[in-house]
Amino acid sequence: MKTTLAFLAVLAAFAAAPFALGPYYTTLIIPILAYAIALIGLNLLFGYGGLLSFGHAMFLAIGAYASAVMGAKLGVRSFEAQLIVAMLASGTVAGLIGLLCLRYTTIFFSMLTLAFGMIFHSFLFKFYDLTGGESGISVPRPSLFGASHAGLSKTAFLVGPFYWYALGLFAVMFLVMALVVASPFGLALKAARDNERKTAFLGVPVFWVRYVAFVLSGIYCAVGGAVLAVSIGAADPELSFWTQSGNMIFIIILGGLGQLFGPVVGAVSFTLLQDALMANTQYWRFALGAILALIIIFAPRGILGLITRALDWRRR
């Protein structure tokens, strides 16, 4: 009940944003939605499964490039088709890589995902004909449910139809994840994080539970990546660089690791914080680093944990 109410409040806030804020801030919210979708997926693996991946930006980039290649090179403008291809491509890559990476846990898992992420980054640079090399590929405006919205300016398209489309997609992906984490599968994933050996003694195929989580997280990141590519109008290799993976981990910790709303709170806070810091100081990276250190030391459950604690304190 509490989750449903919180979810409705989040949806209402996002729905009110275009009316309350100007186009600038509304265009800023689309990457928030894109990152929220991607991080809901990464949170399944990292927060619920305890597996820290330093390579998930790769899946974000796969989604972005799937949208770009489909739209710019193959002339397929349907965003639904682009999303399906993004999910299939990312799911396939995650399925193959997961078989290798999940043979390990802890730092070895993290390093392997980092290695695959770097290989993919190099691939995007070197295979110029397909990926556009360093400059990437421009993403043409996609059609949404068959409607091209050709009469709208770029900004009007983004803050209008595409915003609502991204919000709907976020809502669906969030609800699916809420069901996943509350299911026996989600609980088995958490149990394996707590104690892998004992989880196996209770009949859980721990490797396969983690494998499914890995593939699912890759698919979520790809969907987020496709939305992100449309909002920024391009897919470029920087999307897959390891610093992007670092940012994704930062956002989850900032919001609240292993909590359903953590990635959403993190994506909102990070985007607004980064925007404010970049506008006011050239030392914004230093400030972000300091904030991360403070969060880990004083609020290990992130901003969401602080909010929950404050609400509990008020109730008392």
Binding site: L187, K190, A191, R193, D194, N195, R197, K198, T199, A200, F201, L202, G203, V204, P205, V206, G258
Partner: peptide
Amino acid sequence: PHLVARRGIGFSPEESEVFASL
């Protein structure tokens, strides 16, 4: 181990930690 458990053998280990997050 998971297949042994599914055959019908239950195990309560000595260090009986329960899953803390459940």
